[in-house]
Write a protein that binds this DNA or RNA. Structure first.
Lengths: 114, 114
DNA sequence: TTCGTTGCTTCGATTTCCGAAGCAACGGCC
DNA sequence: GGCCGTTGCTTCGGAAATCGAAGCAACGAA
């Protein structure tokens, strides 16, 4: 249970008391599965159980916590059918993180031939 | 103790057995303080204790683990003076994540007037 | 009405993280 | 040389986050 409020800009978060927005983002995203859930939702809206499966069978309790945080932070919401989807803000974050894919491929290449 | 190998592309990581590079990245960065440490190093190279202070007094044991992983993954290294610095690859990741700052400011604005 | 699926919740076991303490090595500085 | 402050860690016990299997009410299809 529990599920305290998600980190948000303007408030003191783990590792920073200044309230600087990016620090809140780093706290929010630096939790296990947060980035992955966001990444998956950026691809497509999905229901809880489907999302869980697509995240490699993440524990349902943790997925619930992460989703709650994303919703609380205004990055995700549930549509009429109950499916989870990113808000406009969430989509923009997804777009901001999109370069990660290209970088990771470069990373893979670099590690193959050091 | 412990400190197993960092997640890398091509290998099975938490939440994905396909070896897709971006999944390894999401695993690596989705650990507490990993994003923050990378973010700080992207700004400037620093020694262990200074980095610890700048990360809001993160526990030294965890910082050590995260740094080990970043080094192991080829994203960071120690210079002649022993200071931690990003490699070329690490810097590119930092650059790929740079838009996060701008996004976070937008997030802050959006939450102020909902 | 039975059956399968979904969206969760619970809770005990594990893993991760925290944080205070300690320590060897390296300067300065006298 | 001897003393002091700083640095880069390591150790380890306790707290917190995560896991994972189980269960359950609600819903739709048959």
């Amino acid at each position: 249970m529990a599920a305290r409020a998600a980190p948000k800009p303007g408030r003191s978060v783990r590792g920073s008391k200044t309230g600087r927005p990016v620090m809140a983002a780093l706290d929010l995203l630096g939790r296990r599965w947060a980035l992955r859930a966001l990444w998956e939702l950026a691809r497509e809206s999905r229901g809880f159980r489907e999302l869980q499966a697509d995240c490699g069978d993440i524990s349902s309790s943790v997925l619930r916590d992460r989703l709650r945080e994303l919703v609380d932070a205004g990055l995700a919401e549930q549509d009429a059918a109950g499916r989870y989807a990113l808000t406009a803000l969430g989509s923009e974050l997804g777009a901001a993180l999109a370069p990660l894919d290209g970088w990771a491929q470069k990373w893979a290449r670099a590690l193959r031939r050091p």
